[in-house]
Computed example of a mutant assay.
Amino acid sequence: MALRATDVVAIAVGAASGWAVEELARTRFPNVRAQLGAAGLVTAAAVYPAARRGRRVSLAAAREIGSVAAATGVAMKARERGGTPARALIAAGWAAHALFDARHDSGPGGGLPRWYPALCAGYDLAFAAALLRPGAARA
């Protein structure tokens, strides 16, 4: 897939947003960062099938449902682990979702704008990187 100027802008906006959201979680909600990251990961995966138009069954729709299932599995495993290992697992899930965004073809019935996967991939990678940082120091 060749990058267009709109893709580069979308990636940058997504990355800035992902970093900012995780920074907020790190400073305001340090004890539940993994849980917030897990909920966000499942939500990010669910956007694709939720935006689908019509009830057409396709390979793209199946991949999207598989992505939701995988994100849910990662979130459940992270819950078992807790702490830093959970954050690392959730970060890996976000990075994997960026690959999904970059390679996904929504096929017939896809309801998202063309720029959305690039925005989401930028968000995913920045969020993953930010999630790996230690928690904020308490004052």
Rank of each mutant, 00 (worst) to 15 (best):
A16V: 12
S17Y: 04
S17M: 10
G18L: 01
W19F: 12
W19G: 00
V21M: 09
V21H: 06
V21C: 02
L24Y: 14
L24Q: 03
L24A: 13
R26H: 08
T27E: 06
R28S: 14
R28H: 12
R28Y: 03
F29D: 04
F29H: 12
F29E: 11
P30Q: 10
N31G: 15
V32D: 12
R33W: 08
A34D: 14
A34M: 01
Q35C: 00
A38R: 03
A38P: 04
A39I: 11
G40Y: 07
L41T: 04
L41N: 07
V42Q: 11
V42K: 10
A44N: 14
A46Q: 14
V47F: 14
Y48W: 14
Y48T: 14
Y48K: 01
P49F: 08
P49D: 09
A51W: 12
R52K: 07
R53H: 08
R53Y: 11
R53I: 13
G54M: 05
R56H: 13
V57N: 11
V57C: 02
S58V: 10
S58M: 13
S58H: 06
L59R: 14
L59F: 09
L59Q: 07
A60E: 08
A61M: 04
A61G: 03
A61K: 05
A61Q: 04
A61H: 10
A62Y: 06
A62W: 14
A62S: 11
A62C: 09
A62H: 07
R63K: 14
R63V: 01
E64M: 12
G66K: 07
S67D: 13
S67T: 08
A71Q: 08
A71R: 11
A71W: 09
A71M: 11
T72A: 15
G73Q: 01
G73A: 06
G73D: 10
M76P: 00
K77G: 03
K77M: 13
K77W: 05
A78Y: 07
R79L: 13
E80D: 02
R81M: 13
R81P: 00
G83C: 10
A86M: 08
A86F: 04
A86H: 03
R87S: 01
A88H: 09
L89F: 06
I90E: 00
I90L: 05
A91E: 02
A91G: 05
A92I: 03
G93N: 09
W94C: 00
W94M: 02
A96W: 13
A96G: 09
A96T: 14
L99F: 04
L99C: 02
F100C: 01
D101Q: 05
D105A: 13
D105E: 15
S106A: 15
S106D: 12
G107Y: 10
P108C: 03
P108A: 13
G109K: 05
G110P: 02
G110M: 02
L112Y: 05
P113L: 12
P113I: 10
P113C: 06
R114M: 00
W115P: 00
A118Y: 07
L119C: 09
L119Q: 08
L119G: 08
C120E: 08
A121I: 08
G122M: 07
D124G: 00
D124E: 07
L125Q: 01
A126T: 00
A126M: 01
A126N: 02
F127C: 01
A128Q: 03
A129H: 00
A129M: 05
A129V: 12
A130R: 12
A130L: 03
L131E: 00
L131M: 05
L131W: 05
